[in-house]
Design a protein around this nucleic acid. Structure first.
Lengths: 167, 167
DNA sequence: TATTGTTATACTCTATAACTATA
DNA sequence: TATAGTTATAGAGTATAACAATA
């Protein structure tokens, strides 16, 4: 009905960027709708999830983990704090820094949000069976963790220059 | 050195959205740097690649395939056309529409861009071995093709409501 | 001097609305 | 009346710069 393009599955070799973009946008849309009432949307959720999983972290750490600017993190936390989901607590080891901790309400809300997100995830990974889903998530997670670790200072031209493709 | 978060690989069960975001941004950054001189950057490339692979398509089709608004597509094509990489040709079956076709120069450039992108892709998928890379790309492609097909009219609440997670 | 966090500002990107020309 | 494409405008999101407090 809509676009006649890509109804024929193309070779796997091409368009990693396209596939990543489609899946990312699809998930972002589904998650955004599921979390429409959450301050900050999917990002607000990620702050809650990270603070809950990793324990109290500094704003700058959270910003790096989420891939946003520190100024964005300020606004995000303002909203979450106004909603009573997190608190900014002083860091006794560095009085410049603030540690982000979940409130009791934040923990409650987080539990509910995780259920909602499971729905969104199912929608996106609908075309995979149980085993494939696990495989996909495992590989994606590995790529992501590695990407974050080697991270923000991308070693751009370090390892590649010579390539021979059949154009 | 940078953020101490996520150096401990977390359970696969959580944070699909986080992993997708990290990998997507990582690829976008690498691709953006590789294609800095291309009109429209990675999107310009995708227009060229799609037009080459699928043959002449209408602007609206391309916009849907790339996940951008039709107005964005206009600007994008303006730049690509100015650079002599594509041409807007009349569609004999509908005089309102324009078919996007690659110029000879566009085909030349595309070949070079594909080589560059292979570098970017290697960086991103660095942590996977040969077999895992193929598996990951195959699964991702499947998810993406399905996402685009079932597509833009997401059947949001169609299949899920009941969920039991251990919070 | 460098860093954490905040605020205000500017910029980029994208979508919205109005328009032309076709159907 | 509805659709393909263009243009101008407004809005959302993001980054930049300047600041205060602390290291």
């Amino acid at each position: 009905m809509s676009s006649p393009i890509a109804e024929v599955p193309t070779s796997v070799e091409e368009d990693l960027g396209w596939a990543l973009g489609v899946v990312f946008r699809r998930y972002a849309k589904a998650a955004g709708e599921s979390l429409a009432d959450v301050p900050g949307g999917p990002r607000g959720y990620q702050v809650l999830a990270t603070a809950n999983r990793e324990g109290p972290r500094r704003q700058l750490e959270l910003a790096g983990h989420l891939g946003v600017d520190r100024t964005v993190m300020t606004y995000l936390l303002d909203d979450l704090e106004k909603a009573g989901l997190v608190e900014r607590q002083p860091d006794s080891t560095d009085r410049r820094a603030r540690l982000i901790v979940l409130s009791d309400k934040g923990r409650e809300v987080l539990c509910d949000l995780e259920k909602r997100l499971t729905t969104a995830e199912r929608q996106v990974l609908d075309s995979l069976d149980e085993g494939e889903r696990l495989m996909f998530r495992t590989l994606l997670q590995r790529v992501a963790v590695r990407a974050e670790a080697s991270g923000h200072n991308a070693d751009a031209c370090t390892l590649a220059e010579e390539l021979d493709e059949n154009c």
